[in-house]
Each structure stands twice: as structure tokens, then as C-alpha cells.
Nucleic acid binder design. Sequence first.
DNA 1: GTTAGCACTCTCTGCCTCTGACTGCTAACA
DNA 2: TGTTAGCAGTCAGAGGCAGAGAGTGCTAAC
Lengths: 349, 349
Amino acid sequence: MDLTARKRKILGLLVERYIKTAEPVSSGEIKALYGEDISSATIRSELASLEELGYLVQPHVSAGRIPTEVAYKLYVENILAGEKKEIRVAGVRDYLDKKIVEIEDVVRNTARVISDATNYTSVIVIKNTDDIRIREVKLVEVDAGRALVVIITDSGVIKDNIIEIPVNMGSGYVSAANEVVNDLFADKTLRDIRAGVMNIDEEMMQYHDIFDKIINLLEAYASGRHDKVFVEGTSKMFAHPEFSEIDNARDFIRLLDEKEKLGELMTNDGDIELSVRIGKPDGIEGNCSMVTARYSIGGAEIGKAGVIGPERMDYDKVVSVLHYIQKVFNGEADPDDKEKKNGEIRKRK
Amino acid sequence: MDLTARKRKILGLLVERYIKTAEPVSSGEIKALYGEDISSATIRSELASLEELGYLVQPHVSAGRIPTEVAYKLYVENILAGEKKEIRVAGVRDYLDKKIVEIEDVVRNTARVISDATNYTSVIVIKNTDDIRIREVKLVEVDAGRALVVIITDSGVIKDNIIEIPVNMGSGYVSAANEVVNDLFADKTLRDIRAGVMNIDEEMMQYHDIFDKIINLLEAYASGRHDKVFVEGTSKMFAHPEFSEIDNARDFIRLLDEKEKLGELMTNDGDIELSVRIGKPDGIEGNCSMVTARYSIGGAEIGKAGVIGPERMDYDKVVSVLHYIQKVFNGEADPDDKEKKNGEIRKRK
DNA sequence: GTTAGCACTCTCTGCCTCTGACTGCTAACA
DNA sequence: TGTTAGCAGTCAGAGGCAGAGAGTGCTAAC
């Protein structure tokens, strides 16, 4: 269903206007924004036509128009197709540069930065994919009968957990187990482990108990049940008028409160680098939209970072911010100061 | 200001009634609840007197009465003074018994259990006090130039963090540093470390860099800035009518959103085992109350667990739930099944 | 001190009207 | 055929008003 250039322009202006004001947009307002000379009557007839095509609705007959989900989708398509603005966000590199890659700290910080930069609620999921490669597994004896399992992966220390170990096995037992366990798991992915790509020989069987526990731990990550979900800037929602309706506010908070569901929602958008999902047609409840970006550290996918807000969201800004942060994580973005110092010309698509 | 027995009874009934219904309570309702024969007119004159004393207010002249903060405080005093009910909460022991004491998991679970049992939003703070005693510090080499610092305390593994270490120092360097660092920090409290109760001799100076970093980490915990705050059941607030007012809802979410403030609020109630704070006079914004319990594992204080809800809160239930969980953590409560099996008679205060 | 009766107050709800904002339609125009 | 000005029509929202209902304070009697 192809629109004329004028329809497209009017629709675009209307969507942008509505994103700004949250009020139905009248033909008069569009006339003022349009630039070239055009009468409001003409615009009215175009609006009526756009309504018939399903891009607009009228709350009531004597009101202006508001965009439908279809209109937002078209609008977002244009943004994604065009050249991406890059909104540099202060403070993103600061903590990345510190190289203290305790993932949770980085994630919490990033979530806050995203939320502050966009003025929406941000969500980050640390995804535990099967493809994360284990670099090393360490057993650290905590006290008699318990040991800390530290799993070091491509992308940092993902998780640690305490397991019980047999007692009274002699002083060398744990360090011996440590070595054997490490030999066994190092350089495997979770997928490998699940598929049983391991040679367990006689000698190893004495550590069978420990193997089982570690495998259980690893499977627990892999199962996705332990996706860690971080939410920041919940209260930012109140800045947007749609959430002064108590029912909308409740739906929104419920969505955030059910962390497992939220995590699943974040990750089930397929294999897309940057996905925008708008309202019910995309499975988001409660008149909400969600923009998520996949992010990686050192080539390995870590999870998704995103923003949740009203359907009437400043998609342009949000997409730009997420895109920038995605690049920073991927190591593609130059640090600001470096750029200034050598005056190098950055090439961007 | 001593009240007559009748005034106390009427006030108690009124508070309980209001906690249940959230509607101003009329003299007629109290008459129905009172039990003995008494006329509504008598009650009315008592109510007028209680209002004058500051325990009640009337939203408007033709409405019933609602309790003031003073009234709640009196009511709570009575609860705390009396015999504590013990509300056994299913599922508390389950994960404690697993002995997987990765503190964060336990905390997250506990928060959820509290929230579900009380139907209010629950908050848990892992407090990093100066008195936590370090049992062991382990350095685990992650890769060239980085090591994981695991700090094991009286009450489990509190935190782990990655620090940078000097490279090219030879293969034995980290394990040697490990030993020295452990000798230095083991059996010290954060307070000791801060006070400089450590003998650093010549030989140790070569690991100076690592010491500094570890001390920085420890100080960061001690400073309280890294208090970890867990919130569960945010959306439960919507079950309570005071939060259908959008302003109240916003204030509440803001409070939860500012984790640092919230953490401070949780911990600044002095040295009380179980504290109930009601409204503005106790520094809680937005017509809210907060019930918090100190909890410990193995004698060492870990932090605070609590509930935030409207001033009109079911204090009796909340106090009972928190009290029970406190006991479970302290190892004072018998497991349900054990109790059933041997038919032992529990002695409770 | 307690109670019944009664007048009084105030909120809440529904109803009405008025105003303002926009639209759709029509007829004239380029 | 597309565009425009003018105008009548529609509807949400605000403001005002009346009636019902709830609950009180007061008074006088017990």
C-alpha cells in the first residue's frame, strides 16, 4: 500500500508532533508545521484518507488524529532505514575504560545511563546462551565441605556459586579436583557440555560428585531461568502522560515486576541487532513499546539492553542512544577525547 | 497521656477496621464491632474526645474517623509489646536448607517470600558493616593482568570483584601474593583494616599494589555505598487503594527507584531488632510506613529485611512474618517437619 | 454517664448547559 | 481534478445546581 509523498510527509509530521505533545494533532497544527503553502482543508482530506488506510484514528469526531501502531511502525522503519544519528552519551566509556569487567556492575551502570539519556525505563538482560565459551573453571575451597565455583568465560566472570564437596578426602583433594575439573570444562561451550562432549575416564570418576554439581550449575544458567534482569529508572515512566492513567501505570509496573517474563520478552525477538516492537501486534501488553539492542563484549553476545516506554515513544532518540552504546560495547566507537586529539576523520556509514 | 480502657478499645477497633477497609470508620461500625452493649452516641462522644487528643481525624464533618500516625504508633506498640504471633511462611527453609549460601540468591528468594506472604512490597539490604569478619581472601588469576578477588566472611561470600594485577611477574607471583594477602587479611574485620591493624613488612611490599586494590575494595564495601538493595513485589502496591491516587503511586515508585536512598533509609533506624516506622515523623516520605528487621546468619549481621507499604498497613501480619523469618535466619526456628516428626513441644516466649 | 432523636453539614452523583475545538461537507475556484 | 474558504455539526470538558445518603454534633431526657 504505497502512500503519496504528501501523505507520507503529513503522516511523519503528525507522528512526530504526537510524540512531542501526546495530544491529538489537528489539521491546523500540521498546516503550521508543513512549511509549504497548503490549506488545512486539504490536509483534512488527506487525514481522512490516512484514517481510512488505517494509519490514524480519531478519539472522537471533533478531535485531531493520533497515530495507530501501523503508523508508528512505518515511522520507525524510516528511522531504521535512514542514517542513524549518533547521540553520544556521557559516562558510557568511563566505566568501560576502567576495565573492571565485573559484568553486573557494568550492566547496572549501563542501564542507568540509558535510562537517564532517554528518559525512559531501561531494562538489561544478561543472557546465558549456550554459546558462551568457558575459559576456566576454578574451585575455591571456602571451608570444610564447601567450595566456591568460579566460572570464567569469554566475556568475564558470569557467575559464581557455592557447592558442597565431600569432606575428609585429604588435603590435596580439592586442588586435584580443581585441576581435573578445569581440564574437563575449559574451552567448552555450554552447548558442548549439554551435548556431552566430554571424555570422562576412570581417574575422573572419583570426582564424579563434583562434576555433577558443576554441570547442574552450568545447566541452570543455560536453561535461561537464570537470566539476570536489571531494571533502572522505573519512576521515569511518570514523566509521560499516558501513565497518569492508573491502569496503564499498573500494567507497566506489573510487566517490570515479573522479571522472568520480562527477560523472556526481551530475548524472544529473534536474531535482530536492534529491534523495535510496538504494542500488541508484537506481543507487548499495555500500550507499550520496547526497543532492544543486542550487545556484545569482545565478539560474544552478552545480552540485550533496551528501553520500555509508551507506544508514543521518541523512537529516534532511543534508537540513536542504543545504537551508540552498542557500538561502544563492540569497541567500534572511538573515545571522544582520542577523536579530538588527533583530529582523525571518522568514517560512518 | 493515658487513655481509659474504653478509649483504648475503641481506638484499637477503629484502627483495625480502617486497616481492613481503608474507609473512614463511623460510630455505627464501631458499635457493631464492640461486642458489649453501647450506643453509637456514646461512641461518638468518645471519638470526639480521641480526635481532640490527636489520635483521629475526620476527612470532613459528615464522615467517619481515620487514625493519625500517633494512633498507628500506639497500635504498633501494643503489637510489639504483646506475644508475637508466628506466621509460618512456606518456602523459607527450603532454600536455606540447600546450604547454597550465595547470599544474593538467598536474599532474592527471601524478598520474594516476604512480599508474597505479606502482600506488600519488600526490600532487603545487604549491609556491609565494619564488623563483618573476613575469614579468607582468595586471589584467583583470571587471565594475564587480571585476578578475581573473592572475600569469604563469617556469613558467606559477600562479594567478588576483579582487579588488575601486574603482568610479567613470573608464574609464582599470584599464588605467592595470594598467600601473603590471605595471611594479612584473614580474621580481620573491616574496622580493623580501616584502623590499619596490619603489619606490613619488607617482604610484603612487593605486593603493595595488590594490597592497595584489595583495601580499596574492602573500603568500598565498608563505606556503605555498595549496600546492595533488592526490591520485590513492586506491583503489589496496586492492591492497596491509597496507591490508586497517581501522586501516591509516583512517590512510592520514586522511593523504590532511588536505591541508595532506600538503602540508607532501611539501615538508619539504629540498633533495633525489629523497627516499625510510620510516616513523616519517622522520615518516610509519601504517607508510607516501613517495617524492618535486622537479620543475621550465624550470629553476624547481614542486613535488613523489610516491607514498605501504606501507612494503613497490616502491621500485625507484617511483624509476624518478619519475626518468623528473622528466627529462621538465626537458626532459632525449628523446621516444620522436624517439629511434626518428634512431637516436641516448642517453647516460645 | 448514657442514650434517642433531630437538625445540620458535606460529599457524591447525575444532570444540564455552555464553550471551544475540530471536523466534514459543499460550493466555488485554478 | 485538485485545492480552498466558509460554514454547520459534533463532541468533550468545565462549571453550576439539586437531591440523596452518610454520619456527625447537639440537646434533652433518662
